[in-house]
Amino acid sequence: MGHTIKDQKKLLTRVRRIKGQSEALERALEAGSECAAILQQIAAIRGAVNGLMAEVLEGHLRDHLGAEDRTAEQRHEDLEQVMGVLRSYLK
């Protein structure tokens, strides 16, 4: 069983929180809120997305790269996949 299935409820809770934060940001922009409030909301969303990414990444690394039943070739393929995702995420 994959880690995103085992942790599905917790991950979906995080995603729903991000969705709510995004909707609050949209409302703040539509209402012409102060720049500081908008910046704070953007920072909160970024922090929430970073936390979600860290949690899913940790689970992936533990389940795929840390699994003892994986061959060296499978680990290398998983590592390359993770590195590609991290490169695009950190751009």
Rank of each mutant, 00 (worst) to 15 (best):
M1L: 15
M1E: 08
G2V: 14
H3N: 13
T4R: 10
I5V: 15
I5P: 05
K6M: 12
Q8T: 02
Q8I: 02
K9C: 00
K9A: 04
K9M: 00
L11H: 06
L11G: 06
L11N: 06
L12A: 00
R14I: 01
R16S: 00
R17Y: 02
R17Q: 07
R17V: 01
R17T: 03
I18H: 00
K19I: 00
G20Q: 04
G20A: 02
G20E: 06
Q21H: 07
Q21L: 04
E23Q: 11
A24I: 05
E26F: 06
E26W: 04
R27A: 14
A28M: 13
A28Y: 05
L29T: 04
L29D: 05
E30Y: 03
E30D: 08
G32H: 04
G32E: 03
S33G: 07
C35P: 04
C35K: 15
A36T: 11
I38T: 06
L39A: 10
L39T: 10
Q40A: 11
Q40L: 03
I42F: 08
I42E: 10
A43F: 05
A44F: 00
A44T: 03
A44I: 01
I45F: 04
I45R: 02
I45G: 05
I45E: 00
G47W: 05
N50W: 05
G51I: 00
G51P: 01
A54E: 14
A54S: 11
A54C: 08
L57N: 11
L57W: 11
E58A: 12
G59T: 07
L61P: 04
L61D: 08
L61E: 07
R62L: 14
R62D: 13
R62K: 15
D63T: 10
H64W: 13
H64T: 13
G66K: 15
G66S: 14
A67P: 12
E68C: 12
D69E: 15
R70I: 08
A72S: 14
A72G: 09
E73G: 08
Q74L: 07
Q74R: 09
R75W: 08
E77N: 08
E77F: 11
L79S: 15
E80K: 13
E80H: 10
E80W: 02
Q81T: 12
Q81I: 09
Q81H: 12
G84C: 05
V85M: 13
V85R: 04
L86N: 06
L86W: 07
R87K: 15
S88P: 12
L90C: 11
L90S: 12
K91A: 12
K91R: 15
